[in-house]
Design a protein around this nucleic acid. Structure first.
Lengths: 235, 235
DNA sequence: TGATTTTTTTGACGACACGTCAAAAATCTT
DNA sequence: AAGATTTTTGACGTGTCGTCAAAAAAATCA
């Protein structure tokens, strides 16, 4: 049945591609099944054969983009250097990811609404969490490498997960604030991305992860990573 | 016309109260105008006299809760102590706020979706941003106090806003991750609130804000603030 | 007070999107 | 080629949205 299955997978992808375009311009409220069906030249029922509702499509889109992020994080984690430099490489990957796939963040915001998420299948929910965990584990690995290398010494009661959670929070929070509302502009912040970089640097300094950002120019590492690791990747 | 106006304001409040209860259990998708009208014993048209759509109701609810947060932040900022202790008091306020008004976070998540926010009036949008700015300015004031007191020395290129943005990001991000999805559980994190406290502490340590969290027990400050400042406040 | 004007409330209505399902079309099987 | 199976179709019932002409209530006037 590999022939048939191929076709199904293929159409699934087409649906997602069409849905993504609609979502990019219209967001959650702009996306609707009739329109997807119409633009695909299929009847609505056929779309429902693949996805039980539009929320499920949105979740599937998020998982799709998360795969991209995993790939980028994996690439970044291979950057050669001291653990903290590799972590900077991950930061660069995260930054490029939100710049390259700005719709992903909008997807995440929609999916953070519980009443929307509730309409999705547990299967895909698990898949999404699994994708997130892959990224998290890559990051956690670097933290452990840092400890092993003696660059980072965790004080009593601090776990590696705490550092991962911290970076995740600051980055996710920073990007969230950046692309929603006028608050960031009113605060007088011009380059939010630079700001997120600095915050993560200060955070890791606070955890005592050497070499400190005062001793090493991590912005320069960002530039290097962008050039050396990701210059060719974009699509 | 103060009599008439009073009645209008009054009913506005009633609508919001009813809507909030519905939203608490049903979220964005559970809230609908027919139900609000029915539970208010008014016709739908009357509800529409007050709010042009349900998105506007949700935004109004968020503004309403933000007023509570402003009040809590104001109280916290009056805490007597060194600037960093006062900042800890703000952290305590933020923590209690999300615990006391868990529905506010859900409101924020809904409103972060651009296609939803687009349906709201500019008037209320501005009001919300203004409310956020009030909180931000309170925090920024403490940062400036710290600099004036010599507890914090900003290095070249670091602005007070950066610290505010950092705390905001880490806190907002942390709470976001906490109450959405299973990721946090899978990371093995038990008490997310404690984690957010620690992250903010490490961040401020990283910025060089004295006294460092290694020298002072800021968790103890939290407890004190919760007791001394907020024990009686809850409603 | 009763008539007239103004304001407010009402709920029926058209539009739209959702998700379903019996019938039609396409594909596979023998 | 006939019959069985699978897939596709789109009309349909349901629910929500936001509107607006008519009804009801309140305010004004004579």
């Amino acid at each position: 049945m590999t022939r048939k299955q191929r076709e199904i997978i293929d159409r699934q992808r087409q649906i997602l591609a069409v849905a993504r375009e609609i979502f990019k311009t219209g967001g959650y409220l702009g996306l609707n099944m009739d329109r997807v069906a119409h633009e695909m030249d299929y009847a609505k029922g056929t779309i429902y054969q693949h996805f039980k509702n539009k929320e499920e499509i949105i979740l599937a889109l998020a998982v799709e983009t998360l795969e991209k992020r995993i790939a980028m994080f994996e690439r970044a984690s291979l950057f050669r250097g001291r653990p903290r430099e590799r972590m900077a490489a991950i930061g660069c990957a995260a930054e490029l990811f939100v710049q390259w796939y700005p719709d992903h963040f909008e997807l995440e915001k929609v999916l953070s609404c519980s009443s929307i998420m509730e309409k999705t299948s547990e299967r895909l929910q698990i898949e999404k969490t699994a994708a997130e965990m892959k990224c998290i584990n890559l990051v956690a690995g670097i933290v452990r490498d840092a400890i092993a290398a003696g660059d980072l010494e965790l004080t009593e009661g601090v776990s590696p997960d705490q550092i991962v959670f911290g970076l995740w929070s600051a980055t996710y929070g920073g990007y969230s604030i950046m692309d929603c509302g006028d608050t960031i502009r009113q605060m007088g912040i011009e380059d939010g991305f630079l700001m997120v970089r600095d915050i993560n640097n200060k955070l890791l300094d606070g955890f005592g992860w050497k070499p400190f950002s005062t001793q090493q120019d991590y912005h320069a590492i960002f530039e290097r990573v962008a050039q050396e690791v990701f210059d060719d990747v974009r699509r």
